[in-house]
Design a protein around this nucleic acid. Structure first.
Lengths: 107, 107
DNA sequence: CGCACTACCACGCTATGCGTAGTAGTGGAC
DNA sequence: GTCCACTACTACGCATAGCGTGGTAGTGCG
């Protein structure tokens, strides 16, 4: 099983959830996701996801200088983004339950 | 969240799990998956998955006449397919745990 | 005959994660 | 003062795999 395929559709949810803890920027979000267990998530995937979330109005963004590198582009959840989080989390849990039902005693 | 994206990578696992219960054919597998909760899974997705699983040696196939319609193409798990099921189920569970950790108290 | 259900296949589209490469800023080692 | 590591973002193009659509048949019923 190609782990990267499993992220399809769920990466949005994961990124939005990270932003619920507070505004953040691409590089930090990647780090957080990897620490949480999504060890092989690609940077390009996260930056692409952020761009899409921004285009769709689920996050706002603003620049902020850093004292240890280039400027950071912070992202902030919008109201629509928070609703999106709740909806997606619900969809995800239903999906997981369906799979659990299918897989029960799979060996 | 587009539910169909969630199936990416997991449909293989779901189909293989159905086949552990006994040889089956595309049309029936679609029905079973829908009954289990994957209500909007497309036929083309399942037939495509079966073709891939067959090409990769995870299932064998054989034709069998039906008394209520056209011939059926049955699929049967190979040894490699059963191993694949165990491996994929493990990967899936790890992935689900990672998401659960991320999502905990998401509201 | 027409229709519904069963059963399969092929074609092309689309979404999205990833690899790779490029551009910059800071700061420490040498 | 040069190199390197780490930070931080962006752009380009690829690969995977699920889906929509439509086509071909077989059975059986009204």
């Amino acid at each position: 099983m190609d782990t990267s395929q499993l992220l399809k559709g769920v990466l949005d949810l994961a990124v939005v959830r990270v932003l619920l803890d507070g505004d953040s920027y691409g590089y930090e979000i990647v780090t957080r996701l990897r620490e949480a267990g999504h060890e092989s998530v690609g940077e390009a995937s996260v930056y692409g996801t952020l761009r899409r979330l921004h285009n769709d109005g689920f996050v706002d963004s603003y620049m902020r200088p850093s004292d240890s590198g280039p400027h950071r582009k912070y992202y902030k959840l919008t109201t629509a983004g928070k609703r999106r989080l709740r909806d997606d989390a619900k969809t995800w849990r239903h999906f997981v339950e369906t799979m659990a039902f299918l897989l029960k005693e799979e060996i």
